[in-house]
């Protein structure tokens, strides 16, 4: 069921066209990444959803109700909102920050504390952080709190506007994993804006590429990356970076062959011990790299406990990508 719909939306800022005849349907539980270069109207889309901006023309519906019919305050309270600048309140402790929206709707203080404890753990920090102040945290920790705050009222929609744009590469990877985990656990609808191709491919279940206020390409992730028809714009924007990112997000254990396991014909047993072994949780791209580094075309794949789970070959990647 669609939870957010844009129909023929037009939005201009001082005569400059930002969105033109923009149509988008977002289903419940989707992780939609809106991807595009700076100034392509990404942030405008987010702000139209939570009513910070108003469309010039067209209809936006949230949960089946036109946005004009929503009480703006209630609408915003029913969505999580995370921005790049984080926007934690410096005069409030981490706990008060997390409970900010709960406080607005006057939830019982004991309940608030309970929720803060749950959330801080969910975003991968421990309870000792609750009494600290935002200035005492690193950028990555601050954004974790920003995510916790957005989840506080348990909203079904979360809007994220380049949330990890200002943190370093390693921290960003941690935050991306966290948000993927949270999406998997809580099944919320997430609308995520970014200009980072790798981030888009890693996170989204569906990717929408924008080109000056128009949708250039809108597909589920795998189709988005692998289907052949592309506009010149998409070709230019991606090159092969989306494909590389996709290989980077696919795990080795998802594209292995089962020779010799489950009754499939075995590779010669004596060869097995001399073969290179890899962890199945690494990315397919790492698998390919390992193949090349070791001048071999077969890798033994093991799981967390070191148990053999199959064999990785470039051919197995090919089969996985094409679903054969």
């Amino acid at each position: 069921m669609s939870i957010i719909t844009f129909e023929h939306i037009k939005k201009t800022f001082e005569e400059v066209m930002v969105l033109e005849d923009f149509n988008l349907n977002i289903d419940e539980g989707e992780f939609v990444v809106i991807l595009g270069p700076s100034g392509c109207g990404k942030t405008t889309i987010i702000k139209l959803i939570n009513g910070l901006l108003k469309a010039d023309e067209g209809i936006i519906s949230i949960r089946g109700k036109k946005i004009e019919d929503w009480n703006k305050i209630e609408l915003r309270r029913s969505m999580g909102y995370v921005i790049q600048q984080v926007g934690l309140f410096p005069h409030l402790s981490v706990e008060r920050n997390i409970c900010y929206t709960l406080n607005l709707i006057k939830i019982d203080k004991v309940e608030q504390h309970k929720r803060a404890l749950e959330l801080i753990e969910l975003v991968g920090l421990d309870a000792s952080y609750l009494s600290r102040y935002p200035r005492e945290l690193s950028g990555g920790q601050q954004q974790r709190i920003g995510v916790a705050r957005a989840l506080a009222t348990n909203p079904d929609i979360i809007l994220m506007d380049e949330p990890f744009g200002a943190v370093d590469e390693i921290t960003r990877r941690g935050l991306q994993e966290e948000i993927t985990k949270i999406h998997g656990m809580l099944g919320k609808t997430i609308v995520f804006v970014t200009h980072d191709i790798e981030e888009a491919v890693k996170l989204g279940s569906r990717i929408v590429l924008l080109n000056e206020g128009r949708i250039d390409r809108d597909k589920l992730k795998k189709d988005f990356v692998l289907s052949k028809e592309r506009t010149d714009y998409a070709e230019n924007f991606f090159g092969s970076k989306d494909f590389i990112s996709y290989l980077n997000s696919v795990k080795i254990r998802d594209c292995i062959d089962l020779f010799g396991i489950d009754g499939v014909a075995a590779v010669e047993v004596d060869a097995k011990d001399s073969m290179v072994s890899v962890d199945g949780n690494l990315s397919a791209l790492r698998g390919i790299k390992t193949c090349i580094e070791n001048k071999t075309n077969v890798l033994v794949v093991h799981d967390d406990e070191g148990k053999l789970i199959g064999y990785f070959t470039i051919d197995s990647v090919y089969k996985h990508l094409l679903d054969i």
């Binding site: 702000k47 939570n50 910070l52 305050i73 209630e74 609408l75 915003r76 309270r77 029913s78 909102y81 921005i83 600048q85 984080v86 926007g87 309140f89 900010y100 929206t101 607005l104 705050r149 957005a150 809007l159």
Partner: peptide, 11 residues
């Protein structure tokens, strides 16, 4: 940005 995120959260 603080103001914006506050308004965006339904303040």
């Amino acid at each position: 940005f603080l103001i914006e995120s506050a308004i965006g959260m339904g303040t």
